[in-house]
Write a protein that binds this DNA or RNA. Structure first.
Lengths: 208, 208
DNA sequence: GTCTATACTAGGATAGAC
DNA sequence: GTCTATCCTAGTATAGAC
């Protein structure tokens, strides 16, 4: 699948490397700001200031604010894919799902989980046009979806639930406001919070 | 607690009634728009157009966009209080909590649950200055909190969880994106969706 | 591809007549 | 308390020089 480009000259490679590094710095800043304040409250001026370049330079790399957000979402989806691949293949599907939700909540509590409004329509439209975003999203969804169905067949996850409902529930844990509120109360450690919310997610609120 | 006003003259009463009706119409429109598009995407122009009055007239009733949102939140909290009082006192605390979450999800699926960004700081600041909002919020929280602790003592809700974590989890169900996504897929009835999400909330994703 | 400076618009809020 | 007309800030995006 790799394109048959000519052997890379050092100069071009160096330039490309610089370019990539700059863009990575931009996306990292966007990611942080999206996690801190969300899409609407984040301004392009803040991003430029955070990266340390002029706003017009930003627009040479990304044609719109929506594309900045999309890039941050692609980045976190790629981080997710990388996490998924660290999970031992021998683990039970349920354990992999739990580990993934745990990881996502830790990312969120670390202030590194970008959050987009689930309502903003112009943003959603742009995301749905973004091939890189869609591909990463589908790939993560397929991976998780496979584990969900396996866990349901194994009787570990309630087989009466549609798999899509389970998938949405897991995705929703990644942007759940509850961990953040508990963290903001200042009374509990991140470890406690993650354990509780993870328990609530899989075991429910009820006593067993 | 009623103020000792002079016996109301018909004229004043009528005027006041008109005023209240107009404000109720405003808040109802705000409520709908907040449910549809959220605080940031809602514009004051839309509200004015929805009510059928000029924007400047809106500002005679409510001094800012944030105050509009606060009024909608107070309205939904009052609706919640009214719902809480319909619950039979004889019911077990756990059943009352379940019925309340079910009710909130039905309101949400009906497009009547206003949603505010949990991040917007200027909005949160204004809300925290709003006495009516705070009072209603505290009253609802106290009511639910009491039931939560009772259910934990009765061994119906996991007593190892801090009550505040349970409370936040229940509040979060009222603005959970999962029911809306399932509804948007068009494959399931509202009844199914509510049953599933309610089950996930209390029983968890796992099989029992 | 970086900068400074600026265009353009949306949208919250207000002035002032009635 | 309602209206029309307007103000003004914030914020996305771009022009044009280097």
């Amino acid at each position: 699948m790799k394109s048959a480009t000519a052997p890379k000259s050092p100069k071009i490679s160096f330039k490309q490397h610089m370019l990539q590094a700059r863009e990575e710095a931009i996306v990292q800043t966007v990611n942080r700001l999206l996690a801190e304040k969300g899409f609407d409250a984040m301004t392009v001026d803040e991003v430029a200031q955070g990266v340390g370049i002029a706003k017009a330079s930003l627009y040479k790399h990304f044609p719109s604010k929506e594309d900045l957000a999309a890039a941050a979402m692609v980045r976190v989806l790629h981080r997710t894919q990388a996490h998924l691949q660290t999970l031992p293949a021998a683990d039970a599907p349920l354990d992999k799902l739990k580990a993934t939700v745990r990881w996502a909540m830790e990312v969120q509590l670390a202030g590194e989980m970008p959050s987009l409004p689930s309502q903003n329509s112009s943003l959603r439209a742009k995301l749905m046009e973004n091939a890189a975003y869609l591909e990463a999203l589908v790939q993560v969804s397929d991976q998780l979806g496979g584990w969900i169905e396996a866990a349901q067949k194994a009787g570990q996850i309630n087989p009466q639930l549609p798999a899509i409902a389970v998938l949405y529930t897991l995705f929703a844990r990644a942007c759940d406001p509850v961990p953040g509120f508990l963290q903001a109360s200042g009374q509990y450690s991140d470890t406690e919070i993650v354990d509780w919310v993870l328990g609530i997610c899989f075991e429910g609120l009820n006593s067993r």
